[in-house]
Design a protein around this nucleic acid. Sequence first.
DNA 1: CAGAGAACATCTCAACTTGAGAAGAACCTA
DNA 2: TAGGTTCTTCTCAAGTTGAGATGTTCTCTG
Lengths: 250, 250
Amino acid sequence: MNEQDFLAAYDPGAYPAVAVTVDIVALTIRDGVLHLLLIRRGEQPYAGHWALPGGFVRPDEDLSSAARRELAEETGLDGEPLRRVHVEQLASYGAPERDPRMRVVSIAHLAFAPDLPDATAGTDAAEAAWVPVADLTNRQLAFDHGQIVSDGLERARSKLEYTPLATRFLAPEFTIGELRAVYETVWGHQLHAGNFHRKVLSVPGFVESTGASTERGGSRGGPRSRLYRAGDARLLHPALLRPAREEEVR
Amino acid sequence: MNEQDFLAAYDPGAYPAVAVTVDIVALTIRDGVLHLLLIRRGEQPYAGHWALPGGFVRPDEDLSSAARRELAEETGLDGEPLRRVHVEQLASYGAPERDPRMRVVSIAHLAFAPDLPDATAGTDAAEAAWVPVADLTNRQLAFDHGQIVSDGLERARSKLEYTPLATRFLAPEFTIGELRAVYETVWGHQLHAGNFHRKVLSVPGFVESTGASTERGGSRGGPRSRLYRAGDARLLHPALLRPAREEEVR
DNA sequence: CAGAGAACATCTCAACTTGAGAAGAACCTA
DNA sequence: TAGGTTCTTCTCAAGTTGAGATGTTCTCTG
């Protein structure tokens, strides 16, 4: 924001051509398994490879609007269901050689979605699908999308600790057991059911009771459980911490 | 990353002209007061206003390299002292109207610096100075830089909780009291000296003893204190949490 | 339709962590 | 030398966590 900027105003073509895109790491949970939304590229480079949904930011468009728009286009999602998807900025990726064609800076976003219908391929993808995250170790994602996904996953794991965003993976009304399943899926650990229950109810504003219970018990037995909805807290105090990960600390 | 992208390769001028810049929220502590590096704009728009240091990302340059380069240019810093400054990505700002001249997407960075010499104005600023953060409430920063600064400050406060980055505000060897002063300055609270001491020493890898002590006691009395340097932890486990902030939770 | 097994909700208890205060020693300034 | 400041360690009560157990409700299978 300085002289160069000012000159730029006089000659907008005078500095490097950079394309600005958004990419979205959209996560959901299907059948207890964490899934990621991917599209299969139809064009070179990386034709046939899986990549994150995303695209150019339009001239009159906010970064987060661009992310939501791309997500909508790529999933066929709209209206109320789309509104229930949480989207936040993740990080920006701008290594000079990350796209072989030209300089592209991508503002990556992270999305948490409740269980959604199958994705429909948008105009510029050969295919769109929710893919289990565990299957990604085999596949080679296009560009630096592997790195973006792993940053997104780490961010998601960490966000569950201190925000109530786990509820965004669920329907508006849910049981404590369903909420615990979200944590177990994203963190990849079993949690102690009793302690989890105590903790969730003790954090102010995390969940509030609807007064109702489920119509039936679980599919494999057990009593009906009480239903809750998300409370008004935006941060969890105190946080639900993951068990210590000695090896990740250093 | 799709067909549009591909077409772009054939005609790099075909999509919206967007400028990509970096802006830096550089923090340091001088005389127990949190300071922010600002430049005074010499040119329109916002001529005479204070703004964050920053500038265009060059064609062959990484985002974080651009941030470090701009920081170096704006502070006159170089070599070893510059290497001791911690720089990390903060967030990206790209509202269509954030710069009245054209579309500018800025990748904001956050920097923690030990006490540095006075800043020297770079080529494109009228003036550069470390300004106490507390004085900012009066001044109107250029563009959306007020928002960027407040996001940066919140990130800094939060990073002190779970990373050892507080040490980056200090010389390579420091006392527990100096470290506590960093926390108190950034968080804006007094901390219990005894409990802080116990906690810092109990977190594995936060600090390690040099074996030495200061040559003299504090300027207002008290015994000499032991010297420590930063340990090898990259995350603090368990974290040093700020006292609960009821009002910030909802 | 009985019995096995699963899950919910709650409780117990020991281990650990935190917050607040206090104390002794070292050291500065005046 | 006196008074005040700071470092470091300790104590203790209160709160939180982790692990296990209990009684109950419910589904599924045989």
